[in-house]
């Protein structure tokens, strides 16, 4: 029984034997993307979960050329790797970065903006697990409203994080980047297709993939995929692309699933009141008004 997606990617494993937590969404995103890009991918990963679990000499878990960058320097090192290889006469390779949400939306946003501005020929993949997980679940610029983290505790006075996620997808698009996309590992074939598409486009490509962290989200390790699907089905995340100045929605749920059901499955949202959930639902509806108005289907 042929699996079209499985047939379309490399049978080789390029990210193997790593020490990521069981059920780690980020490691699946990295694994899947490298199986699309193949052995000529050169990966750059900043200090963070994926480098911490994959690069401890002598346990080196990438079978393709891979290098750790400084936390702020994913995009700038990607630029250097791409320019250096090109200057050395290499062709037919892909420089790809894998940074988490903090490494992308906070400390790395300046370098990312610079790379997009220069239109460097690189793919930048943000695996978004919605907090600084490697350091023990602290709030990042991509932590959603209401989430409990170790620096946004949920108490009587404050119910977790008080700010919504930064909109990195549209920030990248605002640079008039050749290609940007959102994805979720809950819809893996869609993510894989987007990585493939990105690899065929000249210039800077940005893919923002939701990659749940069982440890930080307070879910069982086997729930990673379902929850990554449910965040899309409930309308709290969406699958879209930006290309040639145009936003496209790839997947429109006929009817959103219950936001409250999505939230209550996760330890980080258990404390939310009905009022908090209404804030989240309202902001979702507002976002979808914008999407319906501005995105092509």
């Amino acid at each position: 029984m042929a699996n079209k997606t499985a047939e379309s990617i490399s049978r080789e494993e390029f990210f193997y034997g790593h020490k990521a937590c069981a059920g780690c969404g980020g490691s699946l995103a990295v694994r899947a993307a490298l199986k699309v890009l193949g052995p000529r991918a050169v990966s750059v990963l900043p200090a963070g979960c994926m480098s911490a679990v994959g690069f401890n000499f002598p346990q080196l878990c990438f079978s393709n050329n891979s290098i750790i960058s400084t936390f702020a320097g994913t995009a700038s090192m990607l630029t250097g790797v791409e320019a250096g290889l090109r200057a050395k006469g290499y062709k037919d390779f892909t420089a790809v970065g894998f940074a988490g949400d903090g490494g992308t939306a906070d400390i790395g946003i300046q370098a990312l903006s610079g790379a997009i501005d220069r239109n460097d020929n690189v793919i930048y993949i943000c695996y978004d697990n919605e907090a600084y997980m490697n350091t023990g679940i602290q709030k990042s610029g991509l932590t959603p409203f209401g989430a409990k983290t170790t620096t946004t505790p949920a108490g009587h006075n404050i119910h977790g994080n008080i700010r919504p996620k930064k909109n990195m997808f549209e920030i990248a698009a605002a640079h008039d980047i050749p290609y940007a996309a959102t994805a979720s590992i809950g819809y893996l074939p869609d993510f894989i297709e987007k990585v493939r598409k990105a690899s065929r486009i000249q210039g800077t490509k940005y893919i923002h993939v939701i990659a749940p962290c069982p440890t930080g989200w307070g879910i069982a390790p086997d729930q990673t995929i379902e929850i990554a699907k449910e965040v899309v089905d409930s309308g709290l995340w969406y699958l879209a692309e930006y290309q040639d100045g145009q936003f496209t929605l790839n997947h429109k749920p006929k009817e959103f699933t219950d936001v409250s059901a999505y939230l209550k499955k996760q330890g980080r949202f258990k404390h939310l009141t009905d009022e908090d959930i209404k804030v989240i639902t309202d902001s979702r509806d507002k976002k979808w008004e914008f999407i319906n108005k501005n995105f092509q289907l």
Binding site: I67, S69, T79, G80, A83, G84, L85, A87, A111
Partner: peptide, 12 residues
């Protein structure tokens, strides 16, 4: 410098 490190890692 981060870019220069990447380039040097590429052998340039």
């Amino acid at each position: 410098l981060s870019c220069a490190i990447g380039a040097s890692a590429a052998g340039a």
